[in-house]
Write a protein that binds this DNA or RNA. Structure first.
Length: 196
DNA sequence: GCAGTGATCATA
DNA sequence: ATGATCACTGCC
């Protein structure tokens, strides 16, 4: 290991993702999504919102319908990108988790200035070209470790847009770094409501 | 509140 | 070949 490499620039290894998706989704909060553009410049975006899709038994997970051409990478090794088009317009960025054969992944819903999964990919120029690639420096899109986020700043809610999934729609598998709970980041002007 | 948008998948 | 279905966003 490089002796002077700061922790914040350590690339998350593939085995970071070889865990249940909810563990990975929680663990990704506070890490940095890093993208290298064509000109070699690199930008970093702190992850603040994720969702876990647990596997074949999770009725909100694409993998619960069996393997198709679209979702095949979910069944592959952990640490690969799963990117698909939603509603004909929005690319969804996921990272595959867990053992091979288990169709699980984590959706990146918010990072840096980008609020919402479609805005993350649009802002970072991510599309189908990354589908199936490894989350690693070599592919130009990866995660670096960041400052760990204390549990007191993390909220869990049901996942967005999966109401078709029965009881699975209600499971608290969305993870959010709640800006209202962060003492170091003044958010008052953004969150304050107009007085009646 | 709801239209836009097009790949994907099941059905035939 | 056809139709339903979307892990969403932006404007009404």
């Amino acid at each position: 290991m490089m002796p002077d490499m700061p922790r914040s620039s350590q690339t998350l290894p593939a085995d970071f993702f070889d865990r249940p998706a909810d563990c990975v989704a929680r663990g990704l909060l506070g890490t940095h999504l890093v993208v290298r553009d064509a000109d070699g410049s690199v930008s970093r975006h702190a992850v603040f919102e994720t969702e876990a899709y647990l596997g074949a038994h999770d009725l909100a997970c694409h993998g619960s319908k069996g393997m198709t051409k679209r979702n095949a990478v979910m069944f592959g090794p952990a640490g690969c990108w799963y990117v698909y088009l939603c509603y004909g317009m929005h690319w969804m960025l996921n990272v595959v988790t867990g053992a091979e054969g288990v169709p699980a992944a984590v959706l990146i819903r918010g990072a840096g200035e980008f609020v919402g999964p479609g805005r993350v990919t649009r802002g970072l120029g991510i599309d189908k070209a990354f589908d199936g690639a490894a989350a690693a420096r070599a592919t130009g899109l990866w995660f670096d470790a960041g400052e760990p986020i204390s549990p007191r700043f993390v909220s869990r809610t049901p996942r967005i847009g999966v109401s078709y999934a029965g009881e699975w729609a209600e499971k608290p598998l969305r993870f959010v770094v709640d800006p209202a709970k962060l003492p170091t980041m003044p958010q008052a002007s953004r969150t304050r409501r107009r007085k009646p």
